[in-house]
Every structure is written in C-alpha cells, then in structure tokens.
Computed example of a mutant assay.
Amino acid sequence: MSNWHPTNDQLLEFASGTGSSAMSIAISTHLHFCQACRHQVHDNESMAAVLFEEQTRADLAGDGFDRLMSRIQNEPTVSAPKAPKAPSRFPPVIEKLIHKDTESLDWRSPMKNLRVSQLLKDETGLILGLHHMKSGGRVPHHTHRGNEISVVIEGGFSDEMGSYGPGDFIHLAGEHFHSPQADADGDCWLLSLVEAPVKLTGPLGWLVNPFLKP
C-alpha cells in the first residue's frame, strides 16, 4: 500500500483532464498501485459528471438540444474491448512509453549505481524520466533546481525523510536535500518528473553537475 500520495488538487486536475501530460502519466502510475487514490479520482469524476449534467440541462434551452444531439451523432464509434494482455512488469502507462523493453532505451549513467533515460518532455517543459538504481546503491547528496516528483515502480529506496516502496508518490522542492539509497534486496526503478536537473551538493558536485543537463 502506498504511503505517499498526490495532493487532492493534483488528483482533481487529473480527473478533470487539465493536468500536463507528464503529470498525468505520473499520477496514472501511482493509481496503478493505490486503491485509495483510485477511489478519490472516481469520486472526482462522478462529481464532475453531475456538474456537467446540471450545466447541460441549463444549456438545452433554444437550440441547445439540437447542438447536443449533433455532438452525440458525430462522436467516433467506440470499438469493442480487446482481450486482456499478459501481466506486465511495469504499470501499463509505463510499458507504452518503453515500447519494447528497458534495454532498448537511451540510457545515461551520470554516476555509479544510477542510470537515467529521458522518456519525454511535455508541453509545459516538464521532463519525464526512468531511473534505475542498483541494489544498495546510493545517489550522492543533492538538491533540486525545481520541483521533482518521483514514483516508485519497482523495488524501493530510503533517504533522510523516509522509506519508499512501489506506488509511493514523492514530491520534493528546491529546499529539500537528500541522498537516496536503493534497498539492499533488489534494484529500484523510479519514474521521475522534474522541472530541471538535480544539483549535486557534495565535494565533487562541481565536476558532475555539467553532465546532469537533459
């Protein structure tokens, strides 16, 4: 069960479809693991449907009904549901981004024990990436040049603020400093959403930081 979750505002934006592409992917990944947030999104969607229905009733005066029927008739036909696929290693939204397998991605290794692959940069400039931390590996002490959201998709890690497992949705900002370490019993896979690359704060940060640019 996830212990770290998106905010209510983030879930509301997701349910209403107003969030950015990268944020929607991050929240979809969290929802794969978190039943409580799935229920919250369902409640938000139900509330939005009721509000839409009330607004529609108010708009049906005059030629509103004709416009509504025209929209319904022009909606694309929904195809029959496909047969379920075999269980995937990662949440479906991540599998779609990977396409083939993780080894087919373009990986960079900015430091020992860590490799990173940028999956996309969305319409707002947010960078979505996949991080692979080796079992027991530690990432040097660093801070963030902007907001960062991490979602654990396999394994786990810990830092100065806590321990995290699959589904945890961790939001860090520029005032946070930490040194994540993957659990000793297996590699850790993370989905990350960043506004800007991290900034190493240790003794060798000046040497490595230039290589952390996207």
Rank of each mutant, 00 (worst) to 15 (best):
S2C: 01
T124N: 06
T124E: 07
L190S: 00
T56D: 12
L128R: 02
W4E: 08
V194G: 10
L130Y: 06
K134W: 10
E160Y: 12
H39G: 14
S88G: 12
L130T: 03
D101M: 10
L191K: 00
S117K: 06
S163Y: 00
G202F: 15
S109G: 09
Q10W: 08
P81F: 02
T201M: 02
A49Y: 09
S179W: 00
H99F: 11
W107S: 07
E54Y: 09
L11W: 03
V93D: 03
H131S: 04
S79L: 13
D9R: 12
G165N: 06
Q181N: 04
C34T: 04
A196R: 14
C37T: 03
S79R: 11
K199N: 14
M69V: 15
A83H: 07
S24H: 14
G202M: 12
R38V: 12
I149C: 03
K213M: 11
G167D: 03
R108E: 01
S150A: 14
G186N: 09
L130Q: 07
D43C: 14
F157K: 04
V151Y: 00
G64A: 06
M161F: 14
C37A: 04
G17V: 04
C34N: 04
P180C: 05
W4L: 09
N147S: 15
R71C: 11
E160M: 14
K85T: 08
L207V: 09
G186D: 03
A36G: 05
G156H: 00
T56L: 15
E154T: 10
Q55P: 04
V41H: 06
H176L: 09
G165I: 01
S16Q: 07
L97T: 07
A15C: 02
